[in-house]
């Protein structure tokens, strides 16, 4: 697929094939088009050309809310929790994914037992029970990122997109996020994430795709990628020839 913003070619003929059940990383320098790629996949942006097939069906031109319903959830690079709502409500909001488009939205209460129980399980998975009743916007960044993951999990995704899940987190929080993402993946959710943190990336990604200036320059296992000369060049600049 390709995407152009005015004179900037944000993505050029990028092709990506994420397999069911894997953890895939997308890395690349700033401005490489990673977040644009995410925004196209989850429907915020329309590609200029190309197709996106999710779960056997094309999702080009489908509303983001409908894509979410089909089982694709995401988090945001700049956290977008529902700030004035409690953590619990953030998760409950995710559980409504099938309800919002139907008239059941006028009948069902998010505080019904079945939803609260489900939400609580997810909150426990993330280990944020302590903050369940606190306004999400008042929490520190590390916890807000967890709230976003919890909310995304509530959507019951088949594919989870994480946009820089550990950016701004300390070592401990990063380690916790590694454990959480592994746990999520083991429960059968395919994970596609963007990250600059190499410790995180190499630790959990089974395969890595590298973007640079909107072009895919490499793809492979963490070992292959860390040795790839084009990747090193993109990150560190080309070696001076004496």
């Amino acid at each position: 697929m390709s995407k152009r913003f005015g004179g900037l070619q944000a993505l050029k003929d990028v092709s990506l094939d994420v397999e069911v059940g894997e953890i895939r990383a997308i890395i690349g320098p700033n401005g490489a088009g990673k977040t644009t790629l995410f925004n196209i996949i989850n429907g915020f942006l329309r590609p200029d050309s190309g197709t996106i097939v999710f779960d056997g069906k094309s999702i080009v031109g489908v509303r983001p809310s409908e894509i979410a319903k089909r089982g694709l959830a995401r988090t945001f690079q700049i956290v977008k929790v529902f700030s004035s709502l409690s953590v619990l409500e953030n998760v409950l909001a995710g559980l409504g994914v099938d309800i919002y488009p139907s008239l059941e939205a006028f009948q069902r209460s998010p505080f019904a037992k079945e939803y609260v129980e489900k939400a609580w399980k997810i909150i426990e998975t993330l280990g944020i029970e302590k903050y369940a009743f606190v306004a999400a916007g008042t929490l520190p960044l590390g916890l807000q990122r967890k709230v976003e993951v919890a909310r995304a999990l509530a959507v019951k995704p088949k594919l989870l997109l994480l946009d820089e899940p550990v950016s701004g987190l300390n070592d401990l929080e990063t380690q916790e996020m590694i454990d959480v993402v592994k746990k999520i993946n083991q429960s059968g959710v395919t994970v596609l994430f963007i990250e600059h943190d190499m410790h995180f990336t190499v630790n959990i990604a089974q395969r890595i795709t590298v973007l640079d200036y909107g072009v895919k320059i490499a793809e492979g296992t963490p070992e292959e990628i860390t040795k790839d000369s084009r990747v090193i060049e993109a990150y560190l600049g080309s070696e001076e020839v004496a």
Binding site: N42, G43, F44, R63, P64, S65, E66, A68, K69, A73, R74, F76, K80, V81, F82, S83, S84, L85, E89, L92, A93, G94, G96, V97, D98, Y100, P101, A105, P110, R151, A152, A154, V155
Partner: peptide, 18 residues
């Protein structure tokens, strides 16, 4: 809750199906 989500953040609301 759908209204709340919309008010708080339109993109995030869409991402959960609103």
């Amino acid at each position: 809750l759908g209204f709340d989500a919309l008010r708080e953040d339109e993109d995030a609301a869409e991402s959960v199906g609103v």
